[in-house]
């Protein structure tokens, strides 16, 4: 009975929020399939702790925190340096034309180190404060501020670089 209620509550939340979670995951990893897996892992971890999370309240924030930490953990295991210079995944074919700007932005975003990407996504996509971001990433607020500044600066540079490359083709 208790388990059934737990499952029903979780289903309601997951079905309402999984789309947004997958989009956040896509911004972090740049691949829809990987984003789908990341979303599923996030929901699995969330369900395992559902009772406690429900009692604590902020389920939404908890889910985003799990998502970001899972993403960072996965990339930490693979190795930061290798990932940072990885090729930007090509969009799957047969999906119609995509605006150049989006390609440039996404390519630049994917060339950022994962931790910078996570900070930027939490700050500007999720609209989280410095404190909330610091708590989710288990770093100090000073680190969040410096990584935000460096991430933005690096992203601007990369966008300019990508734009020159795209226009030069």
């Amino acid at each position: 009975m208790r388990e059934a209620t737990r499952e029903r509550e979780f289903r309601e939340f997951a079905e309402a929020r999984q789309r947004h979670l997958r989009r956040s995951a896509y911004l972090l990893c740049g691949d829809w399939h990987e984003a789908q897996d990341l979303t599923q892992t996030t929901l699995m971890k969330l369900y395992a702790a559902w009772g406690r999370v429900r009692r604590d309240g902020n389920v939404e924030a908890y889910a985003r925190t799990i998502l970001t930490r899972t993403f960072i953990d996965q990339y930490r295991r693979r190795g930061w340096l290798v990932e940072a210079v990885e090729e930007v995944p090509e969009p799957p074919g047969g999906q119609g034309p995509t605006p150049e700007l989006r390609l440039v932005l996404q390519a630049a975003l994917m060339r950022l180190p994962p931790r910078y990407r996570a900070v930027l996504v939490l700050r500007f996509w999720e609209d989280w404060s410095v404190e909330e971001t610091a708590r989710a990433l288990r770093v100090t607020t000073g680190t969040v501020k410096s990584q935000t500044a460096r991430g933005l600066a690096q992203l601007r540079r990369l966008v300019e670089q990508e734009t020159v490359e795209v226009s030069g083709r």
Partner: peptide, 13 residues
Amino acid sequence: VTGAAIAGGRRLR
């Protein structure tokens, strides 16, 4: 992904 997440969550617990 909800069904798979529930099954995985139970296993994890």
